[in-house]
Design a protein around this nucleic acid. Structure first.
Length: 925
RNA sequence: GGGGAAGUGCUGGAACUGGCAGACAGGCAUGACUUAGGAUCAUGUGCCGAAAGGCGUGCGGGUUCAAGUCCCGCCUUCCCCA
């Protein structure tokens, strides 16, 4: 029906045409060029799952647009791509479909290459790297050897998280959720002891906490900081009854005098020796139960604490007290030393545990708020007690049960006297909280030690049969609801009941006790990290083999560098058996020792794929290079990565590993500088139209291939930039993309459809040029700031302006030519195909993508006349058109004279007139 | 429980340093063109009100001539960690 002489916009046709042309011309080949500043833009490499997801487009196309923008800004830009091709899904998919993982993987890569090309991104495909290529994993293995040689890789027997379904060990980061399930298949994990390879990430914990010189989102830095989990405290040397050292880490050495028992992880090596014959059956049952139950998150806060007494005792080094040793699953072998000193009065979990099992509790830190409480049952006090309290200014509530007193600091002594005076025979009274004192007829007993507790408790039981059940004083007090909020606290405060340290204020207590522990040799200042060393062993086939040989004579022998890569055999029975499939291969594991030449065996575990992705940005530099993992010349020119884009989900895994890897390589003399990636930006997630995460089972998956077929890649790219804030993401809208499609079609006809020339007003030209250059200014800024949605909206706005200007006769004028020229340059990074096509059709020299970014003409962008808002008492009452450089006096005078102001002044005279240049006049009456 | 992010029309979102709230889109409505419209074009569209005007950025306070933006308290949602 279209009767216009111009051809229709046919994205499918022009997109494949230009993609071929760019490919032929090597338009996106990036080569070293010392004459230009370099820019290494990196987008996280995809896993070849088979299909490019809309999420890949959402991550990559804005990244591509920005890389293109940087290129037009004069940078020599490298924007490479590749595949993270090792890993479990290949094997799982292979098992289900009976295809070899290699075939599956490379077939997927083939398809995804096609899909990636359909984006029209400026990938330099010559630099493609695939982590499962022998020429790639050769160097992954090489890095392993380097780490091993420098003592940063080691092997130890270790309890590991094991997925019984995938039959493999998992890194801590691959265990998810409260029920601790496998990241891949959702099966709850169990613990298993295996010889495993580790990298010493903890050696870099301190440095990883510093983010000097890198521009990373606050959010990622916080996540990493929490993940590393640094806490300062002390290592304290307890001993067992047999004299074995039992070291604990505590953040609260100031509470040591309140350590009334110890708790070991059930897996702790000393459990066996500590356990008494009597307790052995219970202990062994509990250990078994813990192993069976390790599918539950052992430290869950809401979980009921369980544990068993070993029958053994330890000695508290600060006072020589003998304290019972328990085991409990809430103590983890993987945190600290696998043993804790329990201070039930000031640690919430210890408190719950002690209360449950009737273990002694001794308060050793005063409450910082100084509050104390007392409950006097109705019969316990003589009449007049309430009046006496009132007279003393002490607050209390009273009912049939008795008197409930809350004491401020400073009221405790006078309360004690009053209580003593009014106490009825056969009763006692106590105060709890800031101080712990029991008032009996014959005196006041302070709860200051376990011995005092025993005496007090015995006395109370004599007086009242109802408390006879109580195993501890705290258990007795816990029965009083009124007390519950004051019996426990975990804050710093003045030390009490702590021998010569009693009275030490809370702000000094920790440091002073630590210093003293060091002096007497019972402990030392220590820093503990939640970060664990990186477990890299995987009992899987589809990964890079660990280049190690076990020789009966020589022990652990690294494979010599010149024998790399240790190739994966292809004829392997790769179905999971519980052992590494490589172990079952008839010949592969048999080899000879590189040192003594005798028969030896290969390590059959493969490496965690995060190892592969820790250095892919280096392989991209020169995937063709055979003398090392990367060509030093390429490294020197391109590194470090200038902008890195990808999902926030990698904040604690890949991004910590990569930083560790780079720092370790720096210390081994392989790389330079402290950080591999200078700037990091995270995109959000595209959800399904139902606002839920896209998943096949939900049926809400949006396929980019279909969208490209329906709208063209340019529309899809532009819509993904437009529809949400890039860092936030949001639900897909199939209606929304229509608007973006409409915009590009309007642009097509606006640029190509000629208009009859007619006289044009000078202001039309001026306004057009102003809008063009103002838009250029904001688009330039937004590209710099990764604010892609406002780039597209500004371009839409400009198109609307241009459309009006065209109708007003601007078509064909120099200003029009300039507008179209700048428009296409600004659009080129967003929609590379249509801008190239229009650029050519308008007779401009190939290619729009090698053009420079336009420069703002500040004169043209400048406003000459502006609208001043005129307010009375902050409410808009009128608007006036004024020259932009109007003087304050003139503006105020004009504003006061407006009809709107006069109407609202109602004869009142202004108290104050505020002038904000370029914005408003506010008249205050 | 701790840490972080967010809350703006019917929807996605804009609002740069405190200065006209709702740009740009989607949707909807009306109209034009049309055999037809899921095409295209035009106009309108925060809420209340006939209008004047008033009210409006999760809720409640505060600072200020002026608050979506700053401060205090609270609520809700999401994420991470326990």
């Amino acid at each position: 029906m279209n009767s216009s002489p111009i051809p229709a916009y046919n994205p499918g046709e022009i997109e494949s045409k230009w993609q071929q042309r760019w490919e032929q011309d090597g338009l996106y080949h990036s080569n070293i060029d010392p004459s230009r500043p370099k820019h290494y833009a990196l987008t996280m490499l995809p896993y070849p799952s088979g299909d490019l997801h809309i999420g890949h487009w959402y991550a990559m196309t804005p990244s591509d647009a920005r890389a293109r923008f940087m290129r037009m800004q004069g940078y020599n830009v490298l924007f490479p791509i590749g595949f993270d091709a090792f890993g479990l899904p290949a094997e799982n998919a292979a098992i289900q479909r009976n295809i070899h993982p290699k075939v599956w993987t490379y077939r997927n890569i083939e398809n995804m290459r096609r899909q990636l090309r359909s984006m029209g991104a400026m990938f330099d495909w010559r630099r493609e790297a695939i982590s499962s290529d022998p020429e790639y994993y050769r160097w992954t293995q090489w890095f392993f050897l380097k780490l091993y040689q420098h003592g940063l890789a080691y092997r130890k027997m270790s309890p590991v998280d094991w997925c019984p379904h995938c039959n493999t060990t998992l890194a801590r980061e691959q265990v998810w959720g409260e029920d601790r399930h496998c990241e891949r298949c959702g099966t709850p994990v169990i613990k298993k002891n295996l010889e495993q390879w580790f990298f010493k990430t903890t050696q870099y914990a301190e440095e990883l906490l510093r983010y000097d010189g890198i521009d990373w989102p606050e959010r990622v830095r916080t996540l990493q900081t929490n993940w590393i989990g640094r806490s300062e405290g002390a290592a304290v040397y307890f001993t067992t009854q047999d004299g074995d050292l039992l070291e604990v880490f505590t953040t609260r050495p100031d509470t040591l005098w309140g350590a009334t028992f110890m708790v070991l992880a059930p897996e702790h090596p000393l459990v066996e020796k500590l356990t008494s014959d009597e307790q052995r059956p219970a202990v062994e049952a509990y250990v078994q139960q813990t192993l069976r139950q390790s599918d539950i998150q052992r430290e869950a806060a809401d979980k009921e604490k369980t544990g068993v007494f070993t029958g053994g005792f330890a000695i508290n080094p600060v006072n020589g007290r003998r304290i019972p040793v328990w085991i409990a699953d809430y103590v983890l072998m993987t945190y600290g030393t696998g043993a804790i000193m329990a201070v039930p009065a000031h640690d919430e979990r210890d408190f719950a545990f002690a209360l449950k099992y009737g273990l002694p509790i001794l308060p050793v830190i005063a409450r910082p708020d100084g509050l104390a409480k007392s409950f006097a049952p109705a019969a316990s006090m003589r009449s007049g007690f309430a009046e006496a309290l009132s007279n003393a200014g002490i607050a209390f509530d009273q009912n049939d049960e008795g008197i409930f007193v809350t004491l401020q600091s400073g009221q405790i002594d006078s309360y004690l006297n009053l209580a003593k005076e009014h106490l009825n025979s056969g009763y006692w009274n106590e105060i709890v909280g800031s101080r712990w004192v029991f008032i009996f007829e014959n005196g006041m007993w302070e709860w200051e030690s376990p011995e005092a507790e025993t005496r007090i408790l015995a006395r109370c039981k004599e007086l009242r049969s109802s408390v006879r059940e109580a195993r501890t004083l705290m258990e007795m007090l816990w029965k009083v609801e009124f007390y519950r909020d004051i019996l426990f606290h975990a804050e710093y405060g003045m030390m009490i009941n702590s021998a010569e340290f009693s009275g030490t204020p809370g702000d000094r207590a920790k440091a002073e006790v630590t210093r003293w522990l060091e002096q007497i040799g019972k402990g030392k200042y220590a820093v503990n990290y939640r970060l664990r060393d990186w477990l890299i062993s995987r009992q899987r086939y589809w990964g890079a083999p660990i280049p190690i040989i076990f020789c009966p004579t020589c022990g652990i022998v690294p494979v010599p560098e010149d024998q790399l890569p240790v190739l994966l055999p292809e004829d392997v029975e790769w179905k999971p058996t519980g052992e590494s499939p490589l172990k079952l291969h008839p010949t592969w594991r048999k080899t000879t020792c590189p040192q003594c030449g005798n028969e030896a065996e290969r390590e059959t575990d493969t490496m965690d794929t995060f190892m592969c992705s820790s250095w892919y940005h280096l392989r991209y530099l020169s995937p063709w290079y055979h003398e090392g993992p990367f060509d030093p010349q390429e490294y020197d020119y391109w590194m470090p990565v200038d902008t890195y884009t990808g999902g926030i989900e990698h904040a604690t895994m890949h991004l910590i590993y990569t930083r560790f890897f780079h720092k370790a390589c720096r210390d081994m003399g392989i790389t330079k500088g402290g950080e591999p990636m200078l700037q990091l930006r995270n995109q959000g997630m595209v959800l399904g139209e139902d606002s839920e995460k896209m998943s096949k089972s939900r049926g809400n998956v949006v396929s980019p291939d279909n969208l490209v077929a329906a709208y063209g890649a340019d529309t899809v790219r532009a819509y993904l930039m437009f529809f949400a804030r890039w860092d936030q993401g949001g639900p897909w809208s199939s209606g929304g993309i229509e608007g973006t499609s409409r915009w590009l079609r309007r642009l097509w006809s606006l640029a190509l459809e000629p208009a009859a020339s007619k006289p044009v007003d000078e202001t039309v030209i001026r306004n057009l040029r102003r809008k063009v250059h103002q838009t250029l200014r904001s688009v330039t800024r937004d590209f710099r700031e990764f604010e892609f949605n406002t780039i597209v909206s500004a371009l839409m706005e400009l198109l609307n302006e241009m459309s009006k200007a065209k109708q007003a006769g601007a078509y064909g004028t120099p200003a029009w030519e300039e507008a179209v020229d700048i428009y296409l340059r600004m659009l080129a990074p967003v929609a590379p195909h249509i801008s190239e096509e229009l650029w050519e059709r308008l007779g401009k020299p190939y290619s729009v993508h090698t053009q420079s970014w336009p420069v703002v003409d500040e004169d043209a962008a400048r406003e000459e006349e502006i609208t001043l808002v005129v307010q009375v008492n902050g409410k808009v009452r009128d608007r006036i058109q004024v020259p932009v450089n109007i003087s304050e006096e003139e503006a105020k005078a004009k504003a006061l004279a407006t009809e709107g102001v006069q109407r609202h002044l109602e004869g009142r005279s202004p108290r104050q007139v505020i002038f904000v240049r370029g914005r408003l006049v506010n008249i205050v009456v």
